[in-house]
């Protein structure tokens, strides 16, 4: 059976979406002729031409704004922001324009655009090329945020994001780009807002997304050796997030750990923990524990970045703590 790389899945999702709907156009820095900094858009210029695939100047605010305007004029733009750290420059366009247009204009129009961007560290890329800033967007009414953990979800979620009538932030973890999976016969369809139970287990629920799902898998293997059953809920979609699936899992295991690569404080995990402490209060037999990065910019030196980054060991420790 054929294997697929994560980055290849992104590339195929873009190509298939462009074939399916000629309103889909893609824009970004170095994405056309060069095929993208991470090669997600390789070959698309040749295949779809320069009226569908645009190399832009280094003007992130304008790239995002152009996508908003083209979306309001009937197109379905997909923009690539080279590193998630650079989304700071798009914030007005995403937060004040794209996110607001549907509500603010009384539902006259929506903004069917996608902003794809890679987050995450482990490459010694330093404080401005490693951050996970998805919580900012999840905090903004009007935006949707998804973050796949594997190639199949990457394909399905990107197709869903492009089809979606609302602006979607599509977050790709750089560490996953080289990840491969065995391809099923066909790419499955995935709905935004639906989590996936990645592993069944009876003792504790670990909610994770993106690269943290891999850490959770590793942690689960280790804990299984001690007879601890870990259920992994891969969120896939952060806004909206699948409260029902998390709640169902919690009511089976009664313990909850939430893991992400992003800084722990005020993050996605905080929202999930707060909701579960409310609606899931009666189900909880232990403290809800978050696993996230310490409150520091991602450091450069490999020795320091290793301290900054969470991994399977942190999840194992968190699980042991909530089971205590």
């Amino acid at each position: 059976m054929a294997e697929k790389h994560f980055i290849r899945a992104i590339n195929e999702a873009l190509a298939d979406a462009m074939s399916a709907d000629e309103r889909v156009i893609i824009l970004g820095e170095d994405i056309a002729a060069a095929g993208g900094s991470f090669k997600a858009t390789r070959g698309l210029l040749d295949r779809f031409g320069d009226k569908r695939v645009f190399d832009t100047p280094i003007s992130e605010a304008t790239i995002a704004g152009v996508a908003v305007g083209a979306a309001l004029t009937g197109f379905k733009p997909v923009v690539e922001i080279m590193f998630m750290d650079f989304v700071t420059l798009t914030m007005d366009m995403m937060v004040n324009q794209a996110a607001k247009a549907h509500a603010m204009f009384g539902a006259q129009r929506s903004v069917p655009m996608v902003l794809r961007t890679p987050h995450g560290g482990g490459l010694s890329a330093g404080p401005q090329h490693s951050q996970c800033l998805e919580a900012w967007f999840a905090h903004t009414p009007g935006l949707k945020v998804v973050c796949p953990s594997n190639p199949i979800d990457a394909y399905g979620l990107l197709r869903a994001a492009i089809d979606d009538p609302d602006p979607v932030i599509f977050v790709e973890n750089k560490a996953l780009y080289a990840k491969r999976v065995e391809m099923p016969e066909e790419w499955p369809q995935i709905e935004i807002g639906r989590a996936r139970v990645a592993r069944r287990g009876k003792d504790v629920t670990v909610v994770a997304y993106g690269a943290a799902v891999d850490w959770a898998e590793k942690a689960a293997e280790e804990l299984a050796r001690d007879g601890v059953g870990v259920e992994i809920v891969d969120l896939r979609s952060l806004q909206p997030w699948d409260e029902t699936s998390v709640m169902e899992s919690l009511s089976r295991t009664h313990r909850l750990v939430i893991a992400h690569e992003a800084v722990e404080a005020f993050g996605v995990g905080a929202e999930i923990a707060a909701r579960m402490a409310d609606v899931g209060f009666d189900e909880l037999d232990g403290p809800i524990i978050r696993v996230g990065a310490p409150f520091s910019p991602p450091p450069f030196a490999p020795s320091l970045e290793a301290v900054f980054r969470r991994d399977a060991n942190d999840i194992v420790a968190a699980v042991r703590r909530t089971l205590r």
Partner: peptide
């Protein structure tokens, strides 16, 4: 396509509309 409360924000939106 809308008035705008953010000074300058209409420019990229309109530039995008022009692209379309």
């Amino acid at each position: 396509l809308g008035a705008n409360g953010i000074v300058g924000a209409g420019l990229p939106i309109t530039t995008g509309s022009a692209l379309a």
